[in-house]
Amino acid sequence: MELTKNITLGVYLPGNTAVHRLDPRTKIIASTILIVILLLINSYQAYGYFFLFISAVIAAAGIPPGYALRGLKPMLPVLVLMWAFQLFLHSSPDADVIFSWWIFSATDAGLHLGNMITLRVLFLFTVTTILTLTTSIVSLTDGLESLLRPLKKIGLPTQELVMTMVIALRFVLILAEELDKIVKAQMARGVAFDRGNFIQKTRKIFPVFLPLFINAFRRAEDLIVAMESRSYTGGKGRTKMKTLHMGRVDIACILIILLFTGLMVLTIFT
């Protein structure tokens, strides 16, 4: 049993592709644009284009396609539930009923909405995963800090915010590792996580959380103490080993993203 196998968020996949070498700011801006596009598009055709584009990025970054999608596996039950929710609960007066069951009836409008929302979540997840798989935690920090610098002028503690986010990301994997160990320790003493109905299964999860959070807090505290003793004081006066600079790849990337955005704008308005 390996729980960490399906965690892709917060994992860095070392590599030397053009996508890896991009300036982190380029990647953050590009991801943001893609996310905004995702929130606006509403047709199968647009999602089709999006799918092709994302597939090309995944290929260019040298990420095995199966791996890029693996992180979705733990989320699958939630996705299905969300889809069913939209399917049955969406009602509009002029929608055609596809089929009815007990007090529920599914309409074609509900089906469409369900599909759209599910696709949106799927792609949102994929875009963020590609970003973290190809960008190390530190360069992600540097990029975000640099982009958020203007906000510092209006008094936002950007460096602290970014560091908090980065540590949270680091802890996704740590939490998964902890969970793996605790679940195993409980299974070894006779807890059958895979048996019983939904409620029984859920109830078994509770004793896992206490040790999980105690251990996670302990580790977080250790990490903070270690950072503090390496002279970290919240980012004030901090310099960087790797200075960010945009190169030709970055310009190419921005151009590609702009072209793609143009295409999407066309599909949205026609």
Partner: peptide
């Protein structure tokens, strides 16, 4: 595990000197 900050070795080693400015 609880004292390494970055996901790349050399970046982690740079963390302290970076804090020194």
């Amino acid at each position: 595990d609880n004292q390494l900050v970055s996901s790349i070795v050399e970046e982690d080693i740079a963390f302290g000197p970076e804090n020194l400015g």
